[in-house]
Design a protein around this nucleic acid. Structure first.
Lengths: 196, 196, 196, 196
DNA sequence: GATGAATGAGCCTTCATTCAT
DNA sequence: TATGAATGAAGGCTCATTCAT
């Protein structure tokens, strides 16, 4: 099937990109990695940029799926914990790391490529919206201080996670436990004294 | 003078790199931007990689200077605030932003280039060490909960700032005030109740 | 076919090298001469050095073939004459001259390039060995003075021929007849008086 | 003095050329080797070609001096031996070898550069003329067979020596004794039976 | 005269892309 | 669809030469 071949190419490209970055990876590299031919690749993608963009979409979809999996918990604080836990756990799986290596390339690429920029920012907006929703519910339920600005807090949480990703990719000795502890600390500052 | 010419080249390269990224920037671009000739540039740098590395060092030095400026406050909490404030404020200066655009490139480059990797991680270690020092002093002074793990918190603070940088670079509507508020919130969770 | 294309390139390169020398010939020259493209040439050779080496091998093979053709004569003195005649005759064919022009380049290149050096010296050893064999047979057969050192004589004969090549390449008015006469003279000094 | 400085440059250039060949040697190499500056070299020579030509002249002069030293012997056969001995001996002095390394470059260069060509061929004509003179004297004196063609023999002797130079430069195990023995053999074929 | 930083034409090489098979 | 040889624009870099000091 066509989609299968397309996926083969994408998987090969992803491996190359994760290893060498977008601009250091040549089409020849992807050809070798995939075991296919130049013509074949150009039959499925219009060019290298198209390939990069498709990889971007893949990553985008993967993050969305990760977030979906973390949802469905009604308690706001537990919901936040779930998102944090799921995200941090992913940083310890081989595939998660490879995906983040590509994410980092895309983060940089977003400064120049409008399409990538849209993908990357919408990759921020989704979790921010999700977290905002949970925070609002917590404020309505009296667990979370109603004076707080949900948007700012959500963004900060996402920011912290992004920094975790970076430090993890650089091989810094920063454990999930430490990260989770810091997150809990942050969480504790949101909670109304006496509540849960 | 020789060093002056070298600097001219670096400034031009920095402008190019911030605009187009390392690998999209050609030496020809740097030549045009600097108004110099190819031979002149190769008289001061052994090649493009050398130029990238020199730019990395520049950035490294800039961040170190920024941190130096934020220091010298004896009160631990005030010290932490000072670091946060100085860093966030820098994100609103033209030059600070341009420097961060390059930082983001370097963050990605660090995955492949050992020298850049060292520069980048030591750019994390310095502020982490500084923050750890302040936290420890706060713990000894009774202002900060002695049960907390300073290293993990410091890393989380740096992580949060790194995320702020990303979001700022992507043009996300995230104000310094919001960022500072989130930081204060985080800070509040460290403080022993009753202590200020 | 691949080998055919490779040969096309070599023929073009040979023409260029014979005309301008290795180091004055640019890849651009070979491109023009062959009517192919840069990429195509680099698809068949790793670079200019590879091309030079391949040309060296070609020359080497050509000389070996020439020598093969001159062999198969059982009488020692006639065998020597055959080698001399064949070699000298080749200096009057267009293709032989072009090949020698390249040989001269290679002779000089051998001072710096180990691979070329090996090719060139083995291009001396082959005929020396052949001549030594004939001389020994002549000595055993009583035609040639047994007191003579075959190796030294063989080397001297080859040396003389190399000098003929040089003078011919420089356009010196030195006829095959003169060269052959000198060779006969040399030959006569080897022959035992009274023997054929 | 000016000429002294000029010589300094030539000596440095000669060392570079002998080591790397004309076209692999950059002016930068000569600058380093001489310890002088670019401007200084261009004050004494109009360019690289001029330098090569001056080196060629130096070589030419050196060979002429060598030949001069070998002369002055009235007996024809002894005169020929003297020339051969002097030339072969020079191949075992460090300076002689270095000079021949450059000669080999020039031999190749002569195929393209008219000026070098003239130098090189006149470097053949001089000894040929000298040898012819000796042979003629020998013929008139009855020592040498009057039927022989002096010009052809002289050229062959020079040719043999040129081949010796080549083999020596390539590090071939060819001793002066062997070369001299072969020369004597050749000489013996010229001599009228019964004469000296 | 001497210096050496600067010039810039031109070299070697790569690599995204095409297209006949 | 798939192949892979061929294309050629463009990139990084070198090096002979100049010229202000």
């Amino acid at each position: 099937m066509l989609a299968a071949r397309r996926d083969e190419i994408l998987v090969a490209a992803e491996r190359c990109f994760a290893r060498q970055g977008f601009h250091q990876t040549t089409i020849q590299d992807v050809i070798k990695e995939s075991g296919l031919s130049a013509g074949c690749i150009y039959g499925h993608f219009t060019g290298k940029d198209d390939l990069i963009q498709a990889i971007g979409e893949r990553r985008h979809a993967r993050d969305a799926a990760l977030l979906d999996r973390a949802q469905g918990i009604s308690d706001p604080l537990e919901g936040l914990r779930s998102i944090a836990r799921t995200s941090l756990a992913d940083l310890h799986r081989e595939e998660g790391l490879r995906s983040r290596r590509i994410a980092l390339q895309l983060w940089a690429e977003a400064l120049r490529d409008e399409t990538v920029h849209r993908q990357v920012t919408s990759g921020v907006h989704r979790p921010v919206a999700e977290i905002v929703k949970l925070l609002r519910r917590g404020q309505r339920g009296g667990q979370i201080d109603p004076a707080l600005n949900p948007r700012g807090i959500a963004r900060s949480m996402v920011a912290m996670f992004q920094g975790f990703v970076l430090q993890r990719l650089w091989g810094e000795p920063f454990s999930t436990a430490e990260a989770m502890a810091a997150f809990e600390l942050f969480l504790s500052s949101l909670v109304v004294k006496g509540a849960r």
